[in-house]
Design a protein around this nucleic acid. Structure first.
Length: 590
RNA sequence: UGCCGAGUGGUGUAACGGUAACACAGCAGACUUUGGAUCUGUUGUUCCAGGUUCGAAUCCUGGCUCGGCAGCCA
């Protein structure tokens, strides 16, 4: 469609916009919209305005404005920064004259245009004055009127989809009376809900949004951006299309539920006889993903009821949550690219997102050794007090990332999962009498199991090493199936590691039995905090925001808030694919 | 029920009226000093019924199913 508009000469430049309401944090569904809107701007050499759609003072807050700005910038960084259009702080639309017709326009500021001053996103609330003028104009044209019915009356009189509504008793007030009343609404003469400004369209339209929709309502409430300057606020339908117009937006892309609003969007623009080209609204399907919820209302509940620790909890599908979990922006964009956009209801599997994350991280994350649930292994024939520096590859996918030295000694930790006293079928790892490779180090054979006499729990494993296998090679060509990661006990750094799983244990949390809601399918094991994890010493100084692959375990991200030098905290971004887990699962079923 | 929209493998998407394809997931195998990665192979798809046509996922008619809409929310 964009291509067609360009070809037909309807537009000469492409301007899109991303218009969140600052009443919550952005989630992965918004990421899809950002990717779409910025992607189109990028593809056609245009721009994308970041605009706060803030016409409802009751729900909105500056905290959200700041978070939204940060999330958008983070997500498009290095990709579409040059398309992000902002405006100077405090600037409002300029009034001008186009061939004798009055017009309002607000020009953007693009990166590179000396953008080092104070810039801010666009705000629908910056257009309250022009919007008010437009409303006056509608009244003068006899296309809007002040209505005194109560909300309940309006509701009742709207009718039902299959039968027409009833006209307001105030529908045919004179222009002068309407003008007077509307001005007094603005002046604050009436209490909340006493009157509204309504468009005069068609009470019998099959589209209920055309049955004289409310354009303005009275709300004596301070607004996060305009303070107490206003006590009447425009409704979405009135504000949105005109905001698009004021900003010179050419393509206004929104989700499917606004499809029925499109006739109203167009009606408003046409009724005003505007001098410039009209923006065009088109719709696409919002994103749904398995094992999570996507509505801001539900996400807010998760935050308020303490099911998560905040909007940026790594289990949340928010952009901030994913960032804190360690998802790279590139991977999220790749995901948005792969799901494409359509008009079909959809439920994308989280596995696809995780795949994108793994693919990205596999290429760039340096490898390291970390033992999450340590089991002591004493190598009895290794000289006491001896320490060897073992060379380890930083990233087998990228030789340029080089190697590092990891200390090896007589007492090491391995993963509890990597030892079984009684190995199940197909279990290749360590068990009594079995030989395994310690990655980059030596082959060891388990000689003895030490147990707690009380509980019977395995507390230590004793082993012998083969000095001829240094580096992990077998001079005699013998094969060992398993290679384990390890950490030298004397050199280990203690760390906290947070393991995350899906927030909900079912694919569709909305699909619950009668009388229950989505919180009943919350996953009780979505967060597991491990303390006393043993890391290789090079990780002691891991910096916030660093990403690693802990070999054989997954990708981990240094928590930006809680990690300290010498006492690192890692968040598990995503596990590695685990075919042993799959075998176990199958065995469990079979 | 009125209006609007959408129906293609398990999931998400492609396909000027001309061999139904791609990715993820699955399965099987190869390789492997990560049971990772990689590579190879493979299972499985056009909502239904008519019609137009040499030929239909695509066009037409009818039906079915799913979603959205009756906030002074966005």
């Amino acid at each position: 469609m964009v291509q067609q508009d360009l070809a037909e000469g309807r537009v000469t430049e492409v301007v899109t916009r991303f218009p969140p309401e600052p009443n919550g944090y952005l989630h992965i569904g918004h990421a899809k919209s950002i990717y779409l809107n910025f992607g189109i701007a990028r593809q056609f050499g245009g721009r994308c305005n970041l605009r706060m759609d803030d016409t409802n003072p009751a729900k909105e807050d500056v905290e959200y404005v700041d978070a939204i700005m940060a999330d958008v910038k983070w997500l498009i960084a290095g990709w579409a920064d040059h398309c992000l259009a902002l405006k100077p702080v405090g600037r409002t639309p300029e009034e001008r004259d186009i061939e004798g017709r009055r017009d309002f326009y607000l020009a953007p500021v693009m990166p590179g245009q000396g953008r080092d001053g104070a810039w801010e996103p666009f705000y629908a609330s910056d257009y309250f004055e022009p919007l008010y003028e437009y409303a006056l104009e509608l009244i003068r044209k006899g296309k809007a009127y002040v209505c005194d019915h109560t909300p309940e009356e309006v509701d009742r009189m709207r009718g039902a989809p299959h039968h027409p509504g009833q006209e307001s008793a105030y529908r045919n007030r004179s222009v002068a009376e309407n003008l007077d009343l509307f001005e007094r609404m603005r002046a604050g003469e009436f209490p909340d809900g006493a009157r509204t400004l309504r468009a005069k369209i068609d009470m019998s339209s099959p589209n209920v949004w055309l049955r004289d929709p409310v354009l303005y309502r009275i709300r004596h409430a301070p607004h996060h951006h305009t303070g107490d300057r206003w006590c009447i606020y425009p409704m979405y339908d009135f504000a949105h299309g005109l905001s698009d117009y004021i900003e010179g937006v050419t393509h206004s892309l929104c989700t499917l539920e606004f499809e029925v609003h499109r006739p109203l969007y167009e009606w408003i623009l046409e009724a005003l006889d505007l001098p410039r080209a009209h923006p065009r609204q088109r719709e696409f399907a919002r994103l749904n993903m398995t094992h999570t919820v996507m509505s801001k209302r539900k996400l807010l509940r998760l935050v308020q009821e303490g099911h998560v620790q905040g909007w940026d909890d790594p289990r949340m599908p928010t952009i901030a949550g994913m960032r804190r979990r360690g998802y790279p922006a590139e991977a999220i964009r790749d995901f948005c690219e792969r799901i494409r956009v359509g008009k079909r209801e959809n439920m994308v599997q989280v596995q696809l997102l995780e795949h994108c994350v793994r693919e990205d991280l596999n290429r760039r994350a340096p490898r390291a050794f970390a033992v999450l649930r340590p089991l002591r292994v004493v190598i009895e024939n290794y000289p006491e007090g001896q320490v060897e520096d073992i060379e380890a590859v930083n990233n087998p996918e990228d030789a340029a990332m080089g190697t590092r030295l990891v200390p090896f000694s007589r007492v090491i930790y391995i993963e509890q999962d990597d030892f079984r006293e009684v190995p199940p079928p197909k279990y290749y790892r360590l068990s009594p009498g079995k030989e395994v490779r310690l990655r980059y180090a030596y082959l060891i054979t388990c000689t003895e199991v030490v147990k707690d006499p009380e509980t019977g729990e395995v507390t230590e494993v004793r082993a012998h090493y083969d000095p001829a296998t240094r580096g992990g090679d077998t001079p005699d060509g013998r094969k060992v199936k398993a290679t384990l990661h390890w950490v030298s006990a004397a050199h280990a750094v203690d760390a906290e590691v947070r393991l995350y799983d899906t927030l909900f244990q079912v694919e569709d949390p909305e699909d619950v039995p009668e009388g229950e809601d989505f919180t009943s399918s919350l996953n009780p094991r979505s967060l597991e905090i491990l303390r006393g994890c043993k890391l290789e010493p090079s990780l002691a100084m891991a910096a916030p925001g660093d990403r690693y692959q802990f070999e054989r375990l997954g990708y981990f991200y240094v928590d930006p808030d809680d990690s300290r030098p010498g006492a690192p905290v890692f968040n598990r971004t995503v596990t590695l694919k685990d075919s042993w887990a799959r075998i176990q699962k199958k065995q469990g079923q079979g």
